[in-house]
């Protein structure tokens, strides 16, 4: 389990190992995240992709300890975040931040923009008085707003502008890692592109490491260096995104990529339309959680959770038939 593919370029900032999160609900325990392991290289953008119930949001929250994980470890720069007591954790909070999906509920409506960003600065005692004001102005400028905006309230801004404010708040403490939870999903297409550009600029300029949680496969392909595909709380496939997109090995990844709408009516793809619904996380299938919708499922798939199989040093798949299916596909092409 510990031979998780490490990203190209060596230096690992965050290493998640066997992360599990179980919620106890009135209708029974829910395995939101189960045995998830991956590495995030310093300065890289790792996309976590999945549909509803995949546990992608919970995984992100667990790493930041906004939700207490049930098991596993998250080693950030040599320290296991999950073992840190609340007090010691506060110093690490400065080093990792979060950006939210909903630009409306992520800003306190009663606080001025300057106070929203200022709170981050104050909490870690980063600047006072005039220096603090200058820092706020600088942050606003950095995300494409003007210093005068500090005096306004969130409701005076558009969705895209609010998202910029949220980004400025995250950047205020100069973090190394940012968990971006669907940061552009709630925005209009034209605004989405503006914010994606901003995220990239900042990432390059500040050398940020990012965990980019999304259901939008087009955005992830464009933005992310590595990709982790989740389904019902488990990793189906992971690897460098160019490799995974060019050569998806898990039947789920294949289906997902083949059904993502592409804005080009002339593209004729072989579509794999999955049958049925995503099973309830309250009652996940035995063995491989994907088997109930998998077109290639066999009896053995129900027996045991498929182990991770490497297809290249940094690309791995959790499917017992992946090698067999790959040969099948090549045969079909040659025939």
């Amino acid at each position: 389990m510990n031979h998780s593919p490490s990203p190209q370029g060596g230096d690992v900032l965050l290493s998640v190992r066997n992360l599990s999160k179980r919620f106890h609900t009135a209708s029974g325990p829910v395995k939101a995240v189960e045995d998830v392991s991956f590495d995030v290289g310093r300065g890289r953008i790792v996309g976590i992709v999945g549909e509803s119930g995949s546990g992608k949001t919970t995984a992100g929250r667990c790493i930041l300890r906004l939700v207490e994980p049930s098991e596993g470890e998250a080693v950030f720069d040599g320290v296991d975040l999950f073992k840190l007591p609340e007090k010691a954790l506060r110093a690490y909070r400065r080093r990792m931040q979060i950006i939210f999906q909903d630009p409306y509920s992520s800003l306190n409506p009663r606080m001025r923009v300057g106070d929203i960003i200022g709170e981050a600065i104050d909490t870690h005692g980063l600047a006072k008085g005039a220096a603090r004001q200058a820092r706020i102005a600088d942050l606003l400028a950095r995300v494409g707003l003007s210093p005068e905006h500090a005096r306004r309230y969130p409701h005076e801004f558009s969705g895209g502008q609010r998202q910029r404010i949220g980004i400025a708040r995250a950047l205020a403490v100069e973090p190394e890692l940012i968990v971006a939870d669907e940061p552009v999903s709630a925005l209009d297409v034209s605004v989405q592109a503006q914010v994606l550009n901003l995220i990239q600029e900042l990432q390059k300029e500040l050398g940020l490491t990012m965990l980019f949680i999304s259901h939008d496969l087009t955005v992830v392909e464009y933005l992310c260096d590595d990709i982790v595909v989740l389904y019902l709380g488990r990793i189906m496939e992971q690897g460098p995104s160019r490799e995974v997109y060019a050569n998806p090995r898990h039947p789920y990844t294949k289906a997902l990529l083949s059904t993502a709408p592409i804005p080009d009516p002339t593209v004729r793809r072989e579509r794999v339309i999955l049958q049925g619904d995503i099973p309830s996380p309250l009652d996940p299938p035995s063995g491989c959680v994907f088997r109930t919708r998998c077109p290639f499922a066999i009896e053995a798939c129900a027996k045991a959770v498929p182990p991770r199989e490497s297809v290249s040093p940094s690309h791995s798949v959790a499917c017992i038939r992946q090698a067999e299916l790959a040969t099948l596909a090549t045969q079909k092409v040659t025939a």
Binding site: S158, G160, S190, A193, T218, Y222
Partner: peptide, 27 residues
């Protein structure tokens, strides 16, 4: 609008580096 949607063929340089998107300015 079409230029705002990422497109892996269009938005990658020959060496694989990401190119910036071309958003519509303003609101």
């Amino acid at each position: 609008l079409l230029a705002c949607i990422p497109n892996p063929e269009r938005d990658r340089a020959a060496d694989g580096a990401r190119l910036m998107l071309n958003p519509i300015p303003g609101n």
